[in-house]
């Protein structure tokens, strides 16, 4: 079906097919768990766990950490954490199937140095970390699952996230083209 397939592009599944699969998965997730998929939640659990281990008193006192700490079990014993572990496995599985597992590498356009790429990747991560907390979720939790379940907030995140991306695209073009 995909007419753009040529030798220089690796074998990805047709994006619409991927989308249908993802949509069905989301639907199944809603059907089973009543809530959508997510990704940044696992890292949040990791942050809370780390802070709780390193500075338990500080974590207790903080309005933010204490929301996620219960006496019953570690914050790592969390739905999102297991889901994210699954994502790693799933990515690995697909990588093996399609032959994309290679040695450790940095992916970047030809004109960009490794250092620049890594700095911007890290910076993007930090920004995503901060933004996902304000946005009540990242692109999977808020934009995808939120919009998929008709949440107005999900739509806001979706529109403003991609909107900002487009507004900034011109300024960041050196990084990508």
């Amino acid at each position: 079906m995909n007419t753009n397939n040529n030798i220089s592009t690796p074998r990805y599944i047709n994006p619409y097919f991927g989308g249908v699969l993802l949509g069905l998965l989301l639907l199944v997730t809603f059907f089973i768990t009543g809530r959508g998929l997510g990704a940044s939640g696992a890292v949040k659990s990791a942050v809370v766990t780390t802070v709780d281990k390193v500075a338990p008193v500080h974590a207790e006192e903080s309005d933010f950490y204490s929301k996620f700490i219960t006496d019953r079990h570690s914050p790592m014993f969390n739905w999102m954490v297991f889901e994210s572990l699954g994502m790693l496995l799933g990515g690995l599985l697909s990588g093996v199937l399609f032959g994309r597992i290679k040695k450790l590498r940095v992916e970047k356009p030809p004109g960009v140095s490794n250092k620049t790429r890594l700095i911007f990747a890290g910076l993007g991560g930090i920004l995503f970390g901060i933004g996902s907390q304000f946005g009540r979720g990242c692109s999977s939790g808020a934009a995808l699952s939120g919009t998929g379940s008709y949440s107005f907030g999900g739509l806001i995140v979706l529109l403003f996230m991609f909107g900002t991306g487009y507004v900034l695209a011109w300024f960041f073009r050196k990084l990508w083209i």
Binding site: L37, A39, S40, V43, S84, M87, L88, L89, G90, G91, L92, S94, G95, R100, I101, K102, E107, F120, A121, G122, L123, G124, G125, I126, L127, F128, I130, G131, S132, Q133, F134, G135, R136, C138, S139, S140, A142, I156, V157, L158, L159, F160, M161, F162, G163, T164, G165, V167, L168, A169, F172, L175, W176
Partner: peptide, 25 residues
């Protein structure tokens, strides 16, 4: 949050979910 994430998106080209799969390969 979405605007901040937009900044992050364009500078890194990842979002949290996709970065996990990038790690995996």
């Amino acid at each position: 949050g979405a605007v901040i994430m937009g900044f992050g998106f364009i500078s890194a080209g990842f979002c949290p979910g996709t970065s996990y799969t990038a790690m995996a390969i």
